[in-house]
Design a protein around this nucleic acid. Structure first.
Lengths: 110, 110
DNA sequence: GGTGACTATGCCGGATGCGACATGAACTCG
DNA sequence: CGAGTTCATGTCGCATCCGGCATAGTCACC
């Protein structure tokens, strides 16, 4: 897409909310990436809250365990589309999703 | 798409926001579709607010006029991914986007 | 050490979304 | 009536995304 999708974000090396300009990302891009991170974290949190394994969750989503793992890992092959559909499938409501989208800060891990 | 799912919905006639069960959509699916609609409407509204033509907007998005038209038409070939990236490109902030995502009602036309 | 439950990573074929182009419709002005 | 501007629609080639399989890592418990 845009030229190169910018480095693969250096494995796990990154810190909360600021892959940003460090890599020369435009505002829109970093907003977009951070949104993805928030959503994938929320997804994992919700899955755990429901005490589901990835396998069980995959069944709910009608997908596979590996997809679920990738969703939670924020894998580049996971789109916001999939994240949102998955959250809905776990029962997240529009207003909850709205709060997730809005919150600029990523929640602390549990 | 996916199988049945049973949904209740007692919506009166067929007001804004309910293509719903009428077509046998599951809750998640209709939530997802309505989200798309809200976003595409917001996009058009924002473009107009900025007094941009579709061609100018396409330049901003680094895309084409026809894509912009499809975005606004809620064309099935437009993903939520694209909608969100496009809104960001028009300057929508995360919190504004959050409100859009959350609001169950679609705004009245202008 | 071995087994089982859970999760992560790599890869592949097929599906879908994307930008781009071409064309058409609706409208306004002269 | 053109000609210009704006938006809509159809199609196409290519890139990306997705589901699923296979496999490897991690942890707990015996």
């Amino acid at each position: 897409m845009r030229e190169s999708k910018k480095k693969r974000l250096e494995k796990k090396g990154w810190q909360v909310g600021s892959v940003d300009e460090f890599l020369g990302l435009s505002d829109e891009e970093s907003q977009y990436i951070e949104l993805k991170l928030r959503l994938s974290e929320a997804f994992r949190k919700e899955r755990r809250r429901k005490k589901l394994t990835q396998v069980e969750t995959a069944r709910v989503l009608r997908s596979s365990q590996s997809r679920v793992a990738k969703i939670e890992a924020g894998d580049p092959s996971v789109s916001v589309d999939l994240l949102i559909r998955s959250l809905f499938a776990l029962g997240t409501t529009s207003s909850e999703l709205g709060r997730l989208v809005a919150s600029r800060e990523r929640a602390a891990a549990t």
